[in-house]
Simulated scan of single mutants.
Amino acid sequence: MSQPELLITSGTVLLSLHGGVAHLHLNRPDAANGLDIPTLQDLIAALMRCHGERRVRVVLLTGAGANFCAGGDVHTFAGKGDELPEYIRQATVYLQAAISAMIHLDAPVIAAVQGFAAGGGGMGLVCAADVVIAGESARFLAGATRVAMAPDAGLSVTLPRLVGPRKATEMLLMNPVVKAPEALSLGLISQVVADAELQAAAMAYAQQMAEGAPRALAATKRLLWTGVGLGVDAAMPEESRTVAALCRTLDVREGLAAVIEKRTAQFEGQ
């Protein structure tokens, strides 16, 4: 494979393009990739770059160092004193924008998690991803009520969607540390691999997904996110409209031909 194209090379969030895979990398390892306002602004900028780059078929989200993301930057929060409410108000707006950008991105988002994914930041990013691959060291913690706050980053909606309302209530109110095997059994994550294999396994998974038909991937992602709120009866007409629209694309013709000819399809996003 050719060398990755470096799109954002400095700051708290890095971005590179590996063929059809955009690698978005949280880059504050000394702060456990905690999310303060500058980091959230960088994250939004990187996601917007992915939105605007037609070559991006899949986004791989990773974190530098021992932890994926420890949530909000508690040291920054603690130092704000009386200014904390206003700082949190601004930070929450940026965090919500980042989560919304992930969900509305056409490209599926794969998160590779090692160490802690905690708080509205870490857990929020996990629950907004479409696929989550975790190392054996991964730990998941909601954490908001532990510091007398409430869930943010959409967790009050996305977490019950993944693990069910009863388990989500327990996780949000009692703040248990959920280890990778339990997270897998709950449906919070997609698979567990050895820590030493995490980055390579996640990139290989992303590159395999990126070989799919991009419009079909985007449409399926949208149906999955919107269908939960619609219910089955309301979702089926939208599915029908989506499939009919996709059947106008050249990728569908290529996919059908590849099945008949017993070969690998070559999708161009057209």
Rank of each mutant, 00 (worst) to 15 (best):
V132P: 04
V132T: 11
I133V: 14
I133A: 03
E136T: 11
S137P: 12
R139E: 14
L141N: 10
A142E: 15
G143N: 14
G143F: 14
A148R: 13
A148G: 07
A150G: 04
A150R: 13
P151C: 10
A153L: 07
A153C: 06
A153K: 05
A153G: 05
A153F: 02
S156L: 10
S156N: 10
V157L: 13
T158E: 14
T158F: 12
L159E: 10
L159N: 10
R161Q: 15
L162V: 05
L162D: 04
V163M: 07
P165M: 04
P165R: 12
P165V: 06
R166E: 15
K167R: 14
K167D: 10
K167Q: 13
A168V: 07
A168T: 06
T169D: 12
T169P: 01
T169F: 13
E170I: 08
M171Q: 01
L173D: 14
L173P: 01
M174Q: 10
M174N: 07
N175D: 15
P176R: 05
V178H: 03
K179N: 12
K179H: 13
K179D: 12
A180T: 03
A180C: 08
A180H: 06
E182K: 11
E182T: 10
A183Y: 05
A183I: 07
L184K: 15
S185H: 11
S185A: 14
L186C: 06
G187D: 10
Q191S: 14
Q191L: 10
D195L: 04
A196G: 15
E197F: 02
L198S: 14
A200W: 00
A200Y: 01
A201S: 15
M203C: 09
A204C: 07
A204E: 14
Y205H: 15
Q207H: 09
Q208K: 13
M209I: 08
M209F: 03
M209W: 08
M209A: 10
A210S: 14
E211V: 02
E211M: 12
A213Y: 02
A213I: 01
P214G: 08
P214A: 02
R215M: 05
R215D: 02
A216G: 11
L217A: 03
L217H: 02
L217Y: 01
A219Q: 00
T220C: 02
T220F: 04
R222Q: 07
L223T: 00
L223G: 01
L223N: 02
L224F: 09
W225E: 11
W225N: 14
T226N: 13
T226A: 13
G227D: 09
G229R: 12
G229T: 09
L230S: 15
D233H: 11
D233E: 15
A234S: 11
A235G: 07
M236G: 04
P237F: 00
E238N: 08
E239Y: 01
E239S: 01
S240M: 06
R241V: 01
V243L: 00
V243N: 00
V243M: 00
V243D: 00
A244L: 05
C247W: 01
R248P: 02
R248Y: 03
T249C: 06
L250S: 14
D251N: 04
D251R: 02
D251A: 05
V252R: 00
E254I: 10
G255M: 00
L256N: 03
L256S: 05
A257G: 09
A257Y: 02
